[in-house]
Design a protein around this nucleic acid. Structure first.
Length: 656
DNA sequence: CTAGGGTTAG
């Protein structure tokens, strides 16, 4: 036998109760529940109970009290206690338990060793998990599952899959190898899901059909997600439709899949179907997925209905639901309501705080975002990667350069978080906006990871604002390599050339777009009116009111021109004359949506529009003018942030 | 008197 995995010193063992504080109060609670304080099985049931109810810290306290009273734990004590260590990701406690199990000669018990594998992987100690796994003499499906899940959840799905292949190979070689069970199948599929590789996923799917596991509900649920991650929503739907039985998770997965892939209509439909079929009851997770959908679609009225439902079902204290409410209100333009929902939350996790920070950020309230961030740190929660994305995005949307610089440095120095692509993109945006183009460029060149199109795109956008031809060409060249099918970069560079009077170069870009057959993705905008979402495409003639909208818009245009508005045709590339260019621009979806909104609401009412792309320069100027002459507050959420137009001004300060 | 999985912030 190989040397056992021993990581703790004896000293750690002797001070066993130091990891989890034990108070006399908790002891008395257990004492009252204990039938026999000296019997291991009595303690076991207490620990198992606490662990099952998710009270992991309390379960561990009970364990350490049991030891202090010299009651010897048995083979059934360790699994529950180790599960609690895993849930708390408490490596020190886990190592102590490992040592104790070893001293009692229990560490090769299958129940104990599989719990140890699980504990080490949940604590992020993959090497230790693997050693435990390798030392386990006769592995069963549970140990294999723990190890595969460990690899997958620590970002190594490919290794998880090869481990599964080892299992299959062993099964072929020996008689009566460990058969695959549904839980193991789910673990393998979650590896496929992470890899987002369709051939691999359908390969595993085929295997599961052959061994008769494909009919399992959990397997089906994971397949839905795995196919969706590969980008094949149709296959995901086929799996759902083909399932013999569906549980609440099947429905939740379907709704989440549609929501995450920008198909809010289908997500809503699925939810309504779920309610109608009445076979399964929806739960907190369902509502949180539906709220996410509302957030995406900007469906405030529907979101409010779901909020009512949340209250009726007594789910207000659910962290996920609360966070989804905050997110929904932010993305539907109601930061104040979002803050109210946030303040009402009884317990908040890091995601709740991040959602609030991001929410203030996208509305351009950088100061408030930083206040919330400060409050979060006072509550001793640790900011993570995404928290810093939100903080830096908030700084960038509000132009808070010094604060942005500070937190960009501090995230590594104080919190040991390496800046990722998103953080760099925010910093380039922030520096570029302030005109520090050279510094932004140097930042990119100093990156230890490969910059992506978002990072270079931020620099290119800054070059257009600050009219820098040289750096604009550099970044555009990178972008043409990284994302050759995106015609937006050609347009930007063409604008930069045109601005500098370099007409032939500007023309060259136009030709390039035509030769390569690049087209802009269709832009659309939506407005919610009396609970219904009205969607407009550019030049839309589908809407029942389109004729009225066009004549209203023409009337509005006259007034706008009188107020000094000049159409900015710079962002139109088509080979058409000036008049046609103006027509194309005037029929941009956001203008149609705004006109529709004004026509159908009372004077003075605010208009809110959701747009899938970034707002174009001409629409931005036009809507500023409209907000003034129509005396309306107009709020537009584009793919980047919110624009609050009022009295001829926009909250973004004309940089976006 | 015991272990492993599937849905949830930018």
């Amino acid at each position: 036998m190989k040397a056992p995995l021993l990581i703790v010193s004896k000293r750690a063992y002797s001070s066993s109760s130091s990891t989890i504080p034990v108070t006399t109060e908790t002891l008395s609670v257990h004492f009252n529940r204990l039938v026999d304080r000296s019997s291991a099985s009595s303690w076991n049931s207490v620990i198992a109970d606490l662990a099952r109810n998710g009270d992991s810290a309390e379960a561990l306290r009970a364990f350490f009290w049991m030891r202090r009273l010299s009651v010897a734990p048995g083979r059934s004590t360790f699994p529950c206690a180790l599960k609690s260590c895993a849930a708390l990701a408490s490596l020190p406690s886990g190592r102590q338990l490992h040592l104790q199990a070893f001293l009692l000669g229990l560490h090769h018990d299958l129940f104990v060793s599989s719990s140890l594998v699980d504990m080490y992987s949940k604590c992020g100690e993959l090497a230790d998990a693997r050693r435990m796994f390798d030392e386990t003499p006769r592995r069963n499906a549970v140990v294999w599952t723990s190890m595969i899940v460990g690899l997958v959840s620590n970002g190594r799905p490919r290794d998880g899959l090869s481990l599964f292949r080892e299992l299959l190979a062993g099964e072929c070689a020996e008689e009566g190898g460990e058969p695959v069970d549904p839980v193991l199948a789910v673990a393998v599929l979650s590896a496929c899901s992470r890899m987002a590789d369709k051939p691999v996923t359908s390969g595993i799917h085929g295997l599961l059909v052959r061994i008769g596991l494909a009919a399992d509900v959990s397997v089906g649920n994971t397949l839905i997600d795995a196919y969706a991650k590969c980008g094949d929503l149709e296959l995901a739907r086929e799996v759902f439709d083909g399932m013999e039985a569906r549980d609440v998770i099947s429905w939740n997965s379907l709704i989440a899949v549609y929501a995450q892939n920008g198909r809010p209509a289908e997500a809503m439909e699925a939810f309504q179907e779920m309610v109608k079929c009445g076979y399964v009851h929806y739960n907190a997770m369902t509502l949180s997925a539906v709220l996410f959908t509302c957030a995406q679609a900007g469906a405030l009225q529907f979101g409010k209905c779901i909020h009512n439902q949340v209250v009726r079902m007594g789910l207000e204290d659910d962290v996920y639901v609360g966070t989804s409410l905050v997110d929904m209100y932010c993305k539907c333009g109601r930061v104040v309501m979002a803050r109210r929902a946030f303040d009402r939350m009884q317990n908040r996790n890091i995601k709740s705080w991040t959602a609030m920070i991001a929410g203030y950020g996208m509305h351009g309230h950088g100061g408030k975002a930083l206040e919330v961030f400060a409050e979060m740190r006072r509550s001793s929660l640790r900011p993570n990667y995404i928290t810093f994305v939100s903080v830096l995005a908030a700084c960038s949307h509000a132009g808070l350069m010094n604060e942005g610089r500070h937190w960009f440095c501090a995230m590594k120095r104080e919190f040991d978080i390496d800046p990722g692509l998103e953080h760099y993109a925010c910093m380039v945006d922030l520096l570029g906006r302030a005109g520090h183009l050279r510094e932004a460029y140097d930042l990119i060149m100093g990156m230890r990871i490969e910059p992506d199109s978002v990072v270079w795109g931020a620099l290119l956008a800054a070059c257009r604002i600050h009219k820098d031809v040289e750096l604009g060409e550099v970044s555009a060249r990178k972008l043409f390599e990284l994302d050759p099918k995106n015609c937006g970069y050609y347009v930007l560079l063409s604008n930069i050339y045109a601005n500098a009077g370099m007409w032939s170069d500007a023309e060259r870009m136009r030709t390039l777009v035509k030769c390569r057959g690049l087209v802009k993705p269709p832009g659309y905008s939506s407005v919610e009116l009396r609970g219904r979402i009205h969607v407009f495409l550019s030049g839309d003639k589908e809407h029942p009111q389109h004729e009225e909208i066009y004549s209203y818009l023409a009337m509005l245009m006259e007034k706008m021109h009188a107020a000094g508005y000049v159409t900015d045709t710079g962002s139109v590339l088509h080979d058409v004359d000036q008049e046609e260019k103006e027509t194309v621009l005037h029929l941009h979806s956001e203008k149609l949506a705004v006109a529709f909104g004004i026509m159908n609401t009372l004077p003075g009412a605010a208009i809110q529009v959701i747009k899938n792309l970034r707002i174009c320069g001409d629409c931005h100027t036009a809507i500023k003018v409209i907000s003034k002459i129509a005396s309306r507050e107009i709020v537009i959420r584009d793919s980047n942030r919110f624009h609050h137009f009022r009295d001829g001004w926009c909250s973004c300060g004309d940089y976006w």
